[in-house]
């Protein structure tokens, strides 16, 4: 991660510097996450929708890609909530066993 831009923050006090670093880290993580999602969705939807590539995308292919993108985001959200719920359940049961 590149913090070089931050060292040049003139007159910034420690609290401002700290906040600037936090914000940069959070936004870079969010960006990396979004890029990963777009890359995966492109792969999956190309495979699903463009089965025999022609000289341009047909309107049928475009409709399929639009829907596929929505479904992929939906799938990501289902997986995400299932995973988070499961991990928090496991953590609770481990804590209970230790008590």
């Amino acid at each position: 991660m590149d913090f070089s831009a931050l060292s040049g923050v003139k007159g910034a006090n420690a609290a401002e510097k700290k906040e600037a670093i936090k914000q940069q880290v959070s936004s870079e993580l969010a960006m990396a996450n979004a890029q990963q999602l777009i890359t995966k969705a492109t792969e999956k939807c190309y495979t699903k929708c463009v089965t025999s590539p022609g000289s341009s995308l047909s309107s049928k292919e475009e409709t399929c890609i639009t829907r596929c993108l929505e479904r992929y985001f939906e799938a990501f959200n289902i997986v995400s909530s299932t995973y988070v719920r499961r991990v928090s359940n496991e953590r609770n049961s481990v804590t209970n066993n230790m008590i």
Partner: peptide
């Protein structure tokens, strides 16, 4: 943030794997 990144990465891997296994028919609305 690093822990968050690890969780996000697992969720991408799961979505990839489970999409291939579960979304086998054509894409609907």
């Amino acid at each position: 943030e690093q822990a968050k990144a690890r969780v996000q990465s697992s969720i991408h891997t799961f979505t990839d794997r489970c999409w291939d296994q579960c979304i086998t028919s054509s894409i609907g609305a």
